[in-house]
Measured scan of single mutants.
Amino acid sequence: MDALKSAGRALIRSPSLAKQSWGGGGRHRKLPENWTDTRETLLEGMLFSLKYLGMTLVEQPKGEELSAAAIKRIVATAKASGKKLQKVTLKVSPRGIILTDNLTNQLIENVSIYRISYCTADKMHDKVFAYIAQSQHNQSLECHAFLCTKRKMAQAVTLTVAQAFKVAFEFWQVSKEEKEKRDKASQEGGDVLGARQDCTPPLKSLVATGNLLDLEETAKAPLSTVSANTTNMDEVPRPQALSGSSVVWELDDGLDEAFSRLAQSRTNPQVLDTGLTAQDMHYAQCLSPVDWDKPDSSGTEQDDLFSF
Rank of each mutant, 00 (worst) to 15 (best):
T120Q: 05
E40K: 13
K30P: 10
D280V: 08
H125T: 00
K179W: 09
I113P: 03
Q86H: 07
D214R: 12
A133I: 05
L272G: 03
T120G: 02
T231K: 05
K72N: 15
A69Q: 11
A68W: 01
Q187C: 01
L147P: 00
V128F: 00
L147E: 01
A221M: 07
P239V: 04
P239C: 11
T100P: 00
A219F: 07
E257F: 02
T104N: 01
Q86W: 12
R39C: 06
R73D: 13
S14E: 08
L103M: 09
L42Q: 12
C119H: 01
T38L: 08
E235W: 03
L53M: 03
T231V: 05
P295S: 02
Q302W: 05
A219D: 15
W172P: 06
E177V: 15
T100G: 14
L203V: 07
Q173E: 15
M233R: 08
V58C: 04
S265C: 05
M233T: 12
E40L: 05
D252F: 03
L206T: 14
H137D: 07
S49G: 15
G194F: 11
S227D: 13
K166H: 11
E217P: 15
R29L: 11
H282L: 14
L42S: 11
D183W: 10
K220I: 08
E65T: 15
A263H: 03
Y283M: 05
L31K: 04
V174Y: 08
I71Q: 00
E178C: 10
A145E: 00
D122F: 00
D256K: 05
A241H: 05
E109V: 06
S140P: 14
G244N: 12
A241W: 11
L212N: 12
E178N: 07
E170W: 05
G63R: 01
Q187Y: 02
D256G: 02
P237V: 07
L50C: 01
S175A: 03
R29T: 15
V290A: 06
N232P: 11
K51F: 01
A263V: 10
N268R: 02
A69S: 10
S243I: 10
E217Q: 05
R182N: 15
E180T: 10
N110V: 13
E40N: 14
N138Q: 12
K166P: 03
A258K: 06
D101A: 12
H125Q: 00
A284W: 01
T104F: 01
L272F: 01
L305H: 07
T300H: 10
L17I: 11
A18D: 11
D280Q: 07
R27E: 10
A80T: 15
G210T: 09
S49Y: 05
H28K: 15
V174M: 05
K150L: 11
A68S: 08
A3L: 10
E216M: 05
I132A: 08
K220F: 06
R73N: 07
D2R: 02
T158W: 06
H282M: 09
M153C: 09
S6A: 13
N232S: 05
A228F: 08
T274M: 03
K176D: 02
C199A: 09
M55K: 11
K19A: 09
E301L: 07
W35V: 08
A154F: 00
G24I: 10
T149W: 01
A164M: 01
D126L: 00
K91T: 13
V248N: 14
V88W: 11
P295D: 01
K19E: 07
S224P: 12
S245W: 13
F165S: 02
D191T: 09
L287W: 10
K150D: 08
K51L: 01
M153I: 10
K127P: 00
L147G: 05
G189P: 07
L57W: 10
Q279S: 04
C119D: 00
L272T: 09
Q139D: 13
G189K: 06
T300E: 02
S186Q: 07
L223D: 03
E40Q: 04
S205H: 14
G254S: 12
F171S: 15
W22K: 02
A219Q: 11
F171E: 02
D2W: 02
R115P: 00
L31G: 14
K184G: 10
S298W: 11
M233I: 09
G63T: 01
L262R: 08
I71K: 01
S93W: 12
A278N: 09
Q106M: 08
V58R: 00
S6T: 15
F306V: 00
D296E: 10
W292T: 03
K179M: 11
E178L: 14
R39A: 08
C119L: 03
T41L: 06
P94I: 08
D214A: 10
A221E: 09
L215H: 14
L42P: 11
P61D: 01
P202S: 10
S117R: 12
L50E: 11
G54C: 00
S21A: 07
A133V: 08
L50M: 04
F129N: 01
S224A: 04
L255S: 02
N211K: 14
P15A: 00
E142D: 09
L4S: 02
H282T: 10
S140K: 14
M46T: 12
H28R: 11
T225L: 05
T218W: 02
D126H: 00
V128N: 01
P269D: 03
E44A: 13
F129Y: 03
Q155H: 13
P15F: 01
A221Q: 07
V58E: 01
D2E: 07
N105P: 06
A284H: 13
N211H: 06
E257W: 02
E257T: 06
L305P: 08
D37V: 08
I116Q: 00
A154R: 00
G23M: 12
G299P: 01
P289E: 08
Q155E: 14
L223P: 10
V128C: 00
Q279V: 06
D291I: 10
T100E: 13
L255F: 04
E170G: 05
Y283I: 08
W249H: 04
Q173G: 03
G45T: 09
H28E: 10
D234F: 04
A168W: 02
K184D: 10
